[in-house]
Amino acid sequence: MLSSVFAKTLYDRLRSFRWWCLGTLAFIALYGSVFPSLHGKQSLNKLIEGYPQALKGFVGFGGNLDIASGAGYLGTEVFSFWGPIVLVAVAIAAGSAAIAGEEERGTLDLLLSLPVSRTRCLLEKLAALVCEVVALAFVMWILLVIVSSAAGMGVSAVNLAAAMLGLVLFALDFGMLAFAIGAATGRKALAIGLSATAAVIADVLNALAPLASWLDSARLVSPFYFYSHGDPLRHGIAGTDTLILLAIAVVLGALAPHLFRRRDLSTP
């Protein structure tokens, strides 16, 4: 069963993955059961209208604040709040564990004493990272499709998939950042700290952008902007945005082998 670095890495992640799935199930069930009581309540939207602008930026998804509609509700609760937190957390955890985690535990020395090149080791771990994030997103998607139709949210499976694709790429951007920092330095806390900070900055930049005109261009460096502003829950995949998110992940992923190849491995 443990016949490759790829398989071993996935196997290691499986323990925490089960809990993420369980948590996802609980949350989505909860969201689904609350929705029917909000459905069509314009008074709620009025309430949000009254929020200060700074707060609205954090709540909305693609500018859609109509939480009494299915797309608005999912956008606000799942895709701009809880979904990114969970997937980014999983991606960063996997990205930092890949190289830095093994290096700090001291098992990387023996692994790379085997006839496995550093690049191959890295690529297999990278593939495992992508698989883990995609798998969790897939679980989320299935549950959302079920809940959306059961609770009458009226968001199609296709649009949910479009939003989920954006979310996966968004999470992978930060997972790859953690992965690359770990590969470059071998330090897990640094990889987690920097990439989590980057994720928070991305969110804040995007949320506050409507407040100040100078921030308007600053949001263009925020992956969160490219993830959310096309409102894929209503409009489906936004091509350019998706490509930009993908490009960020690919560049970071491609950087990792170069950073990793040239340095000494450390011992704990």
Partner: peptide, 24 residues
Amino acid sequence: PGDLHLYERLTPREYLRYVAALRG
């Protein structure tokens, strides 16, 4: 290695099978 660190969760059999697999 002088300072041996192994995968704590695996059994020796699982670990040795992994090493053997990576050695083809």
